[in-house]
Amino acid sequence: MTSSPPSRDAATVGAGPTARPTAPVLLVRDLQAHVAGQQVVEHVDLQVAPTGVTALLGRNGVGKTSTIKAVMGLIGRSGTIELDGEDISTLPTFRIAGRGVGYVPEDREVFSGLTVTENLRLAERRGSEHRYDLVYELFPELEQRGAQAAGTLSGGQQQMVSLARALLNDNRVLLIDEPTKGLAPRLVTEVAEALARAAEVAPVLLVEQNLQVVRDLARHVVVLTDGRSVHHGDASDFLDDPVATQRLLGVHGGTDPAGAA
């Protein structure tokens, strides 16, 4: 199924099921997804390791965001999606979230008419502990600005609200879509630090254009091209392979720390 790129060691981590201790928390096989009758994901296989960050890479428009949305059940999809071995591919979105899938969407999607505190309270899930201590430790600003309408926050602050909503609950996996998009370099560092902490709490599937952030955080990568997953492997091996990064991402991962951002 998976056509591996010609790099030396890219195929060492395959898509097949692995031994128990490292069984993936999220397993996606032969995923297809469509929006308004348009096929946006053709065939994606991926797995999220039980710890750390797995990065989902690819050029613009190859179906990264659609893959995340399909896993969340926000767009029409078919194929296998298993969370800790349980099939979630036919569940409605709210049940998927209820099973412990935290979602940080591409454009933050904070509720702009609600206050910061209300945004967080809305995210409180029944049957889960609510880690306000962690959230406010990571983003002290959110505590100070609790009564402010989220729509009046800066882009970086909105991203913090969005991340905080996902970190608040006890999740089994976090799906985080382009958290550093459009942020100033200083904020990128701040968000990256928060992501590193997030990955200690729950495994993360991260869509990220900034390859330096990927290099710092991710252990595994999955690369998409035209709605298909075409490469699975170790993150640093892939990023150190100028041929592969040039071919699949259009950048020299090894030499350009700013990546495609």
Partner: peptide, 12 residues
């Protein structure tokens, strides 16, 4: 404001 995001937070 955004119905799908509400469902993505686990709310029916």
């Amino acid at each position: 404001e955004n119905r799908s995001m509400v469902t993505a937070l686990g709310i029916d």
